[in-house]
């Protein structure tokens, strides 16, 4: 739900302000790759209606955001292309190599799923780099990134709960480790987010 909220915040910003200033297209494209490689079981593995609908929402909204940033006449103009310089392959290749080395089963679907877990953990990095270069971070962008970081932190709590409360729940070391790293990457952002919130000031990251 926090993940869904983050997407709603981002779409709200882009749609109402007709601007994607401070939003990293690189991070959005990495997320698109995360969802495509993770949800390859969309039609073969039915978990629940909720699960299927959320997968479709995550996939379609991410491609919608990318379309807005690349294709919409007004939104495209507000994109900070010169600042958003992080290279995709810098993250994609190491994650692919890691997925080929550390996975639970050597099948195409499993390796791609593991890749998506690793890539998700670091997909925020281009956004954080852009954020640091952005002078005026608007509230919606700040809250968007906060929610995007919070959902994995909440997963950590959920994993602990499931581990102790669910009889047939098995240890998932790949997901847990990647989730911990993903949350840790946000630690610095969370610190400045709460600091600015407490002081009632505009969010600003130190250079």
């Amino acid at each position: 739900m926090t993940h869904l909220a983050s997407i709603c915040l981002l779409l709200l910003k882009i749609h109402t302000m007709k601007s994607c200033a401070g939003v990293s297209l690189k991070t959005q494209e990495l997320y698109a790759l995360v969802f495509v490689t993770r949800y390859l079981d969309l039609f073969s593995n039915f978990v629940s209606m909720y699960n299927t609908i959320m997968k479709i929402i995550f996939l379609s909204s991410t491609f919608g955001i990318i379309w807005y940033m690349r294709g919409h006449k007004l939104v495209r103009q507000s994109y900070d292309k010169e600042q958003d310089t992080f290279r995709h392959y810098f993250l994609v290749i190491p994650c692919m190599v890691l997925a080929l080395v550390i996975h639970s089963k050597f099948t195409l679907l499993e390796v791609l799923w593991t890749f998506s877990i690793y890539l998700e953990a670091v997909a925020i990095l281009p956004q954080l780099v852009l954020l640091q270069r952005t002078r005026n971070i608007d509230n919606l962008t700040g809250n968007y990134i906060f929610c995007l970081g919070a959902y994995r932190a909440l997963y950590l709590l959920n994993w602990i709960y499931r581990y102790f409360m669910e009889k047939n729940y098995h240890a998932q070391w790949i997901t847990w480790m990647a989730g911990m790293i993903q949350t840790a990457i946000y630690a610095d952002f969370f610190y400045y987010y709460f600091k600015s919130w407490k002081k009632n000031e505009r969010l600003k990251l130190p250079a």
Partner: peptide, 10 residues
């Protein structure tokens, strides 16, 4: 039971 390949999370 739930194994790594029976994924129920998003």
């Amino acid at each position: 039971h739930l194994t790594e390949s029976e994924k129920d999370e998003l």
